[in-house]
Simulated scan of single mutants.
Amino acid sequence: MRGSTEETGTAGYRPLLFSIAYGMTGSVGDAEDIVQDAFLGLTRAHQAGTVIAAPKAYLTTAVTRLGINHLSSARVRRETYVGEWLPEPVVVTVDRPGPAEHAELADSLSMAFLVLLEALSPMERAVFVLREVFGYGYPDVAAITGKTEANCRQIFARARRRIDAGRTTADSAPPRERRAEGDELARRFFEATEGGDIHALLGMLAPDVALYGDGGGKARAIGKLLTDQQRVVKLLVFGLRKVRKLGASLRPARVNGRPGAVLRDAEGRVASVIELDIADGVIRSIHSVVNPDKLGHLGPVSDMARLPEK
C-alpha cells in the first residue's frame, strides 16, 4: 500500500518523517498513519496538477501539522489514561528489527524525554522537536508550523525552560563511550536480575532510581512510580523469577536508542519491553511497557500479564 502512495524519489524521506511524527506523538502506529496521510496528500496534490517544487518540505510540513492536530484531539484521552503513560517502544533486536529499521531516532527520543514532551502544548512540542531534535533552523521551523520566526523563538525558549526543569543529570561522556558503557552496564544489570543478585543490582542503580510501569489498565503493572531502590530491586528480581517459571526469557535490545530488553513468553510472544536510562555510570530510571496495545507492532502479544476482560 505504501508503494502506491510514495512516488519515486520521495520514499527516502520516510525515515525522517516517521521520526518527526513519532517525536510528536510517542506512538508507532499513529506515526505510521500520519506519514501515510502525508504521502497521500502529496499524491492527491500531484493528481490535481499542483506543482510541488520541494516535496521534502511539503511532506515535513504535512507530517508536523498532522501531528499537531493529532495531539490536540488526543489530549483528552491522555488525561484519562489509567496509570503511568509511556510511549510505544521502538525496538531494535537482531532477530526482529521492527519499525526502527526505517527510523532515524536520536538519543533524545528516549522514553524519559518523550514523557517530558507530554507537558508541552502541541505547537510547543512541534517547534521543540523540529529545532532541538532534528536541528531545523528557525526560518524552516516557521515555514513548517506557519508561525513567524520571532514567535518560534519565543515558543522554543518557553518549551526549553519547561523541558530543562524536568530533565535529570546528563552523562558527560562522549556519545560513543556513553553507548558502550551503557550497553555493558545493561548486560550486567539483566544478568544480575536473572541471577537474583540483589547486592550487584544495588550497586548499579542510582539511589533515587525510578521505576515506571505502563499497563494502561489492561495489564499488570506497578500502580504508581516507584523510587525506593530496595523495593525496585526486589520487584525486579522476584517479578522476573515468577515469569521465568512460566518459561519467559529476556532478550537484549535497543529501545528508543537506549539499552533495554524484550521479555517474551515460552511461545516467543512479546510480554514486556524494558528501557534503561543510564547516566554517570548508573541506571537512573527503568521504563517497562506491558500495555498490550503498545506492543502489537512488535509481533504477537503474550497474555501473560493481561488483565481479564471486565
Results as ranks from 00 to 15, higher is better:
164 D>W: 14
112 A>N: 14
112 A>E: 15
209 V>W: 00
259 P>Q: 14
298 L>S: 03
282 V>L: 05
15 P>H: 08
95 D>V: 03
106 A>I: 01
162 R>D: 11
129 V>S: 02
192 A>I: 09
240 L>W: 04
193 T>P: 01
240 L>F: 13
223 G>E: 06
192 A>L: 06
88 E>T: 15
50 T>L: 14
13 Y>T: 11
244 R>M: 11
170 A>M: 05
161 R>S: 14
226 L>S: 00
149 E>S: 11
112 A>R: 13
173 A>R: 02
153 R>M: 11
211 L>T: 01
242 K>P: 07
167 R>I: 04
128 F>E: 02
222 I>H: 07
284 R>C: 15
44 R>A: 13
242 K>T: 11
237 V>A: 07
276 L>H: 09
285 S>V: 06
231 R>L: 06
208 D>G: 06
157 A>R: 15
193 T>Q: 08
175 P>W: 00
73 S>C: 10
49 G>D: 08
140 D>I: 09
289 V>R: 07
210 A>H: 09
146 G>A: 05
66 L>F: 10
30 D>W: 14
32 E>M: 14
43 T>G: 09
65 R>F: 01
119 A>L: 04
201 L>N: 03
203 G>W: 02
292 P>G: 04
130 L>H: 06
188 R>D: 12
88 E>D: 15
302 S>H: 00
203 G>F: 00
272 S>W: 02
305 A>K: 04
278 I>F: 01
155 I>A: 06
70 H>W: 12
238 F>V: 13
92 V>I: 12
159 A>P: 06
84 E>S: 11
38 A>P: 01
269 R>L: 01
193 T>L: 10
223 G>K: 15
181 E>Q: 01
137 G>L: 07
170 A>V: 04
120 L>A: 10
173 A>T: 00
